[in-house]
Write a protein that binds this DNA or RNA. Structure first.
Length: 491
RNA sequence: CGGGGUGUAGCGCAGUUGGCUAGCGCGCGUCGUUUGGGACGAUGAGGUCGGAGGUUCGAGUCCUCUCACCCCGACCA
């Protein structure tokens, strides 16, 4: 995360650099000592805490309970479900020893005598360890459904990482459920995707397409994977959250069985679903501009920043007294901060808080005291207006709401503008090259999907739920197709 | 693992055909003047030039080896 002269690179110049500059300028995170890891700094973590708080409420409201499972997974657990281990084998951190010792040179080395009989895997996800526990809990239909969630970290040893979007270790919530019927599991998987979609739209003001993953893009070990795909400002797709109908794959691997009402042995039907710190990367790339981060008010750790314009000592007292009145009139707008530092000029403060994406700035100076008003400036459109103290809380609240709404509208408009419906291969190639979302017919053939990816770098993001069924011919192979699917380059 | 690049102060960088006591900007400390869009002046602190070896009277600069990091691919719910 290098940053030249404390300036933010523009999106036009270098999108990737811009993204990294935003993270540094807003002081969200920095790289950790181990390559691919990330230190999430207080302001970045405050955003995550807000995401946690709101999403956690929604998860609990849908009947799930939080609990915690261990970090370490016996290797044998991971290998019980064949497609699951195949999907994760290449990116697992493995614990092989449990002790260090000093050698004759005085160096600290691994004690080879302390080799573990069975290697332990640092969880890349928790299906296996959770289901091994579920198998002990389930014996009757009365034990179902089991609806649990955990907030945890996971490790996936990716070759190439990017802050928030793909890090070797990341934070997330993962929900895991077990049900008596497939129908119930299917309903659960779709319900939780809807929870994610609502959350992302209402709080993060992101525009997403919900749908089902193709066979080759689905989760390792799932029967069906549902996803919400967001479009970033460079036109690439970001998988923002997923929900899986696991069928009975893990139930059979971990022997999770129950007696039903007819006294027959049945395997349970399961789901899992997750949203991670990756969503913060999506949040950044959806709204931010060339001045820095832009945060939707519903998720911003600081909704309003008050900047007193200080001149000299006598006047300062007067201004700061007035600030106290302003403070009283801000009650109810949400978390706000007063930047009283006297060693930084107002201009520098304006810039600093813009980089951090605070939705509303309030300037308070000598000349406002006479009018009993303040200057209010919006981060999203730079609109500036004078607001009387009496109306302050009301006006601020209205504007926060308006910022939230217009950020969402802007995101939706952008998604619509960058979504192209195409019918020929030539158009397809052009629109993908221009980094658009493309709705095109696809035969359903895995080989065609692979060839399209090889030729254009585009993947099937999803088979959108709201895409009406219509027959057509595959944009690549010209084989018959039942519906258009969403193609895009992806993060 | 392939292709490219960079290592000099906390950050961003300059450093000529090898030459004198290693520089600049930002930031930081102190003092003063400032403050409605990134303030200014004075002054001060801060470096084994990524590491090891070699060539040389002399190496940040040349040679060899090595390490680290970054970018683009490959990989990737």
């Amino acid at each position: 995360m290098s940053n030249k002269n404390n300036k933010i690179c523009t999106r036009q110049e270098d999108y990737s650099q811009w993204y990294q500059d935003i993270i540094e300028a807003a002081d969200l995170a920095e790289y950790g000592p181990v390559k691919g890891t990330m230190v999430i700094k207080p302001y970045g973590y405050a955003i995550w805490e807000n995401i946690q708080k709101i999403l956690d409420q929604k998860i609990k409201k849908t009947g799930h309970k939080n609990m915690y499972f261990p970090l370490l997974i016996p290797k044998s657990f991971l290998t019980k479900e064949a497609s699951h281990v195949a999907g994760f084998a290449k990116e697992c951190a493995v614990v092989t020893h449990y002790r260090l010792k000093s050698n004759d040179k005085g160096e600290i080395v691994v004690d080879e005598k302390a080799k573990l009989e069975e290697e332990l895997i640092i969880r890349p996800t928790s299906e296996t360890i959770i289901n091994s526990v579920f198998s002990k809990w389930v014996s009757s239909w009365r034990d179902l459904p089991i609806l649990i969630n955990q907030w945890a970290n996971v490790v996936r040893w990716e070759m190439r990482t990017r802050p928030f979007l793909r890090t070797s270790e990341f934070l997330w919530q993962e929900g895991h459920t077990a049900h008596a019927t497939n129908k119930e599991a299917e309903k659960e998987a779709r319900k939780m995707l809807k929870v994610y979609k609502d959350f992302v739209e209402k709080y993060l003001a992101m525009a997403v397409v919900a749908g089902e993953k193709s066979e080759s893009e689905k989760f390792a070990g799932a029967d069906r994977t549902y996803t919400i795909e967001a479009i970033m400002q460079d036109g690439k797709a970001l998988q923002s959250a997923t929900s899986h109908n696991l069928g009975q794959n893990f139930a059979k691997a971990f022997d999770i069985k129950y007696y039903d009402q007819n006294n027959a042995f049945q395997y349970v039907w399961q789901t899992s679903w997750g949203m991670s710190t990756r969503i913060i990367g999506g949040l950044i790339m959806t709204h931010s501009d060339d001045k820095g981060l832009v945060l939707p008010p519903n998720i911003a750790p600081i909704k309003v920043v008050v900047i007193p314009i200080l001149k000299n000592k006598e006047d300062n007292t007067e201004v700061l007294n007035f600030v106290n009145k302003v403070k009283a009139n801000l009650r109810g707008v949400g978390n706000f901060e007063i930047d009283e530092r006297d060693n930084v000029t107002p201009g520098a403060k304006f810039n600093e808080w813009e980089k951090k994406g605070v939705p509303i700035r309030i300037e308070v100076g000598l000349r406002d005291i006479e009018n009993n008003s303040v200057i209010m400036v919006r981060r999203d459109n730079s609109d500036k207006q004078s607001v009387g103290l009496k109306d302050l809380a009301k006006t601020v609240k209205e504007n926060l709401k308006d910022i939230q709404d217009s950020l969402y509208k802007k995101a939706v408009d952008f998604r619509l503008k960058r979504t192209k419906i195409v019918d020929t291969w030539e158009e397809f190639v052009t629109e993908i090259e221009n980094n658009n979302f493309v709705l095109a017919h696809w035969s359903g053939d895995k080989e065609d999907e692979e060839k399209i990816k090889a030729k254009t770098n585009a993947t099937i993001r999803c088979l959108p739920f709201d895409q009406k069924k219509e027959s057509g011919i595959c944009v690549f192979s010209k084989k018959p197709s039942k519906q258009r699917v969403l193609f895009a380059k992806a993060y």
